[in-house]
Each structure stands twice: as C-alpha cells, then as structure tokens.
Amino acid sequence: MKPFCTLRSNLRNAFLFSLISLALSSSALQAEGAASETVHLRGGVFRLTGTMANSTALSGADGTLLVDSGQNETEAKAMLAAIQTAGLGPVDYLVNTHRHYDHVAGNAVFGSGGAAIIATPSVRESLATNPILPNVPLLPSVALPSICFDKELTLFFDGEVVSLYHPQGPAHTEGDLVVYFRHADVLATGDILFWGMYPYIDPAGSAPGMATALREVAAMIDGNTIVVPGHGPLTDRKGLLLAADMLEDVSQTVARLAAEGKTLPEIIAAHPSARWDEAFGKGFMSPDNFVQLVYNTLPANTGKAK
C-alpha cells in the first residue's frame, strides 16, 4: 500500500472547500433541487447534467459504468433517477477520479445498489480514514472503493474498452485517475482539468504536477477526442494542452518571483497570471486566489502552514 498525503490543514481545506462550494453553487453548474439529465456524447457515453462536478456514464448491454458520484446523496439520487429515466442499465461500476467530496459523496447510493467502486489505492485509504468534509462522519464501508489499481486498469464492458489510467502524480491530488472510453473516443479527466476557469489544487498536489499529468494524458488522445473536464464545459485536446501551458507558465512565473525574494502579497500584486485571466479568470476561482494556491503548492512551500 502506497503512502498517501492526508489533508494537511483542515482549516485551510475548510476554507477552500467552502470557497469552491459557494462559487460553484451560485453558478449555473449546479441546478437547485438537483435535477439531472443524461446527454448523449458519442458511442455508449453520456454526460450527466445538474451536478457540481462533471459525471460521465457508459451504458450498454452489460449495464452502466458511472464516473464520479456527486457532491452529496441528493445529486447521486438525481443522477440515478436520470440513468433510470433514460432506460440505461443498473450501475455496475462506479469510478472515483479522486478523493474530493464533490466526486465521492454519493458513493453509498451506488455502492448499496451493488456497484463495484474503483479508484486508486490512496483514495480508498483516504476515504476510510478521513471525513470528506470537516465535521461530517466517515463514509460507510459500502461507499469505499473495492477495486484499487496502481497504474492502469482496463475494463471490457458494454463492448467498450475503458482505460483507467493513473497519471504520474501528485497532480490535482496524490491519487488522480482519468477514464478514457477508447471506442467512443471520450476522455473524462477528473480534476486534473478545469475548463474555462482556474483550477483548485489540493495541498497534496501542485500546478506543475497537474501540467505534467495533462501532457501525459494528452499523449493518449487525438484532435477528435471529446474531453470532459472535472468542472466546466466540454473541450478537446487543444483545450487540455492550453490548460497545461497556463499551469506551467503561471507556476514558473510565481516560482521565479518567489526565488527573487518576493513575498506572497508582492507576487499577487505582480499579476503573474494576467495573460491567462481572459480565458481562465472568470470562473469560481479569482486570479488572486489561484496565484495564492500555486504559491502554496510550490515544492518549497508545501510544508508551511498558511
């Protein structure tokens, strides 16, 4: 079993989680009352609407495979209803792209319905020992991943070849995975990619790590691939590489300024992300908050309490 990074600072996470929640819940991403619908993408692959994080489903003769279970059980039940309404088969597999609450909170809904939950080993380890949000109980055992793979897992399901791949990390967290539906040519990235907004970065992750993971994943796909980011609208390989460029550029600039002895407020005042704000700065994460996150997750700063 590999070591994994526990949440370093509950306070900081509480702040950041609430920041994400507030920002996203006021956005169009989350429909109040959590109604969900299936939208066909290509082949047997669907997207589910009405959830905070993007969920993707593969459906066919063997049943349904779902990627990520929503930010709470209400969202999970809405997705389950949408899957049933669309006449898709029972959910046999649930994949967690990483351990954050907005991707795993609905696990019990599907786990108790008989789905086998798949994740990287560190996700199980984390969910079994840490609450997904401050002051909430641990997830029940039926919500824990029961199939944990190290690097690569391939499912032959519904006539589709589903590649689950753990890119080199830490990236967004220490245990991210992407799901690539090979025949349909659809890639669900989880939160190594936020599209149209600056991303959240877990204290265990880093901006350069996310860029490295994105480039690794970019090699698996081509220009025709539909890319479903963890948050935000659909994009493609170009968008994925643009996000990698942005992460590299901003983290290099921030690292250079920090090496020159600049303090965090001075770095923020220098607007190191200025050239990317048009494309990424209009989401839930303000450019200043993003620069702070990049600064906090620089290798030199990850040990410091903020």
């Binding site: 079993m1 199939i147 944990c148 793979f149 190290d150 690097k151 690569e152 897992l153 391939t154 499912l155």
Partner: peptide
C-alpha cells in the same frame, strides 16, 4: 477487467 502490475 485487466490490470498491468498491481490490483487490490
């Protein structure tokens, strides 16, 4: 279900 090196 096919894995490469390790599955738990």
């Amino acid at each position: 279900t096919s894995f490469k090196e390790e599955l738990v």
